[in-house]
Simulated scan of single mutants.
Amino acid sequence: MTTDRRAELAANLAAVEERITAACADAGRAREDVTLIVVTKTYPASDVRLLHELGVRDVAENRDQDAAPKAAACADLPLTWHFVGQLQTNKVRSVAGYADVVQSVDRIKLISSLSAAAERTGRELGCLIQVAFDAESGARGERGGVAPDGVGELAAAVADAPGLRLGGLMAVAPLAGPYAGRQRAAFERLVEVSSRMRVDHPAATMVSAGMSADLEEAVRAGATHVRIGTAVLGVRPGLG
């Protein structure tokens, strides 16, 4: 079974690689400018090990109860773990123990908690500000995230927080609001917001955008990281 699964993952990775390479070529970008993050939520640690064998070095999770045991089971592998889900402050201490990057930072209270946890564990946490294009001014979006005009305040807070490193921005294509159904426009706006932020924080170059259905739009808009789950691992258990 493991041999079959490895072959399946290898074929899926090759197909995703072709898509990313083609999108980079269309956009006049170098392939090495875009990092593939494989979102392994609901899939077992055995899949993470197979992905590592196949060359994957960045993996993502969105639920601490799934991620913590999986990260522990794969602690011997040289992987970068990204936490991409909405994060409650009561889960911060656990997430800070294994995540290298938290991509869903969207409020001051969370920054304070992450900083305290990073200091406690002696680790540096990379942080991305999650931008929500369906949010009203100062509000959070349905999937978490802060409105574009709130990015500056949060970026400054992360940059000043002990134990945290401001990595850049993340967004999910919005389901509502002016950018609903307009992924390319949303991702282009994200890149614009990133450019403005880098005036004050030039090292915060990550732009995490795009998933299985819209990775091409994200790459063409300028994303540096794409988060791919279904196209690599298949339809998640319980979803069809």
Rank of each mutant, 00 (worst) to 15 (best):
K41C: 11
D64R: 03
E53A: 08
D58I: 06
A75P: 04
V59N: 08
D76R: 01
L51T: 13
K41I: 06
K70V: 05
G55F: 08
P44H: 12
E53D: 15
S46D: 15
D58T: 14
Y43W: 15
V56Q: 11
L54W: 07
R49D: 00
R63E: 04
L51E: 12
D64W: 06
R57D: 14
S46P: 04
V56F: 02
V48M: 13
A72M: 07
A45F: 05
Y43R: 15
R57S: 10
P69D: 06
A68G: 00
D47H: 13
Y43I: 01
T40L: 02
P78N: 09
K70Y: 08
P78S: 11
C74D: 13
D58N: 14
S46N: 06
E53L: 01
N62P: 03
Q65P: 05
Y43H: 15
T40C: 11
S46A: 14
D66N: 04
L51K: 10
D58Q: 14
Y43C: 07
A73D: 13
P44S: 10
V48I: 15
K41W: 01
R57G: 09
R63W: 03
H52W: 14
L50N: 01
P78M: 04
T40I: 07
Q65I: 07
K41T: 09
D58F: 05
D66M: 01
L51C: 12
E53V: 05
A75M: 05
P69W: 05
K41V: 03
V48S: 10
N62C: 09
E53G: 00
D76G: 04
Q65D: 07
A45E: 14
N62R: 05
C74F: 08
V48C: 07
A73G: 06
D66V: 02
A68M: 02
Q65W: 00
A68E: 06
R57Q: 09
A45S: 12
P44E: 04
R63N: 04
A72Q: 10
V59W: 08
V48Q: 13
K70R: 11
V39R: 00
A71T: 05
Q65K: 03
A75D: 14
V59S: 14
A71V: 10
D58E: 15
A75F: 02
A73C: 04
C74S: 13
D66W: 03
E61C: 01
A68L: 03
R57T: 14
R49P: 14
D76P: 00
A45Q: 11
L51I: 11
D64K: 02
A72P: 03
G55K: 14
V59E: 07
A75V: 04
L50Q: 10
N62Y: 01
D47F: 11
T40W: 13
A67Q: 06
L50C: 04
A71K: 06
A72K: 08
R63F: 00
R63G: 01
V39A: 14
P78D: 15
A68C: 01
G55P: 10
A73L: 00
G55L: 10
E53C: 11
P78Y: 10
R63D: 00
D64V: 15
V48D: 10
